[in-house]
Design a protein around this nucleic acid. Sequence first.
DNA 1: ATGGTTGAGCGTCAA
Length: 267
Amino acid sequence: MTQTLRIATWNINSLRLRINLIGKIVDALNPDIICLQETKVPDELFPAEAVAAFGYPHMLYKGMKGYNGVAILSRLPLVAHDLAPIWCAKTDCRHIAALVQTPGLPIELNNFYIPAGGDVADRTVNDKFGHKLDFVTETTQWFAARTKLERTVLVGDLNIAPLEHDVWSHKQLLDVVSHTPVETAALTALQQTCFVDAIRHFVPEDQKLYTWWSYRNRDWRASNRGRRLDHIWTTPDLALKGYEILQDARDWVQTSDHVPVCLDIEI
DNA sequence: ATGGTTGAGCGTCAA
């Protein structure tokens, strides 16, 4: 007797502004767990009652004023994963980890918001780009040092589109932060520590696939200049049952520039 | 090459 766990990830770009869109996610995807990035809410102001009212009584969150912030909303009980270190000597709320209590063995869930990296793809003139690369390197070393990782999921806004068809124009974006060779190589190294790209398990690499469309495009669907910045990875022992990218969410009233990504795994 | 839009929170900075 197997059971399916549905995990969604979404860069919500302010949880308080878009709290009611959680209800739309539930209607559209019915996830068991929702991982959020860019919650932009300090912990003391986290809207815990509203989240619980949407059907997610178990939650972990790590937020700050104005920027960043991550949260895990769950129908299943969560145990905080205290292994999560301080990255790049900054307490900037970019990673939260949990052990999800399933009917079987627990699932380790890591929710990341990797730094966007600024505009210039050169760490000698742009500290934010250096921070992004260092963050990925530290994360890679952390997972590489954890031997025999199993039943583990990594989700989040990783702010890197690693494959040629993860962007609308590979050639035109090779110098654009999110798709430069140094970033895609770094993200590939992180993935290869112990993960498979669960969404690309279902969508062949020669097919375009996006999760983010800039606010600056007047008609995002017509121009379709997207990038796949949001990812779900799993260790190879987990059985993958299906996925969904909720592209329609990009048309919701006052929505995020990212759309939810969803994965079904067997537990 | 530039500019285009949004959020937080009231300056601009970050994305």
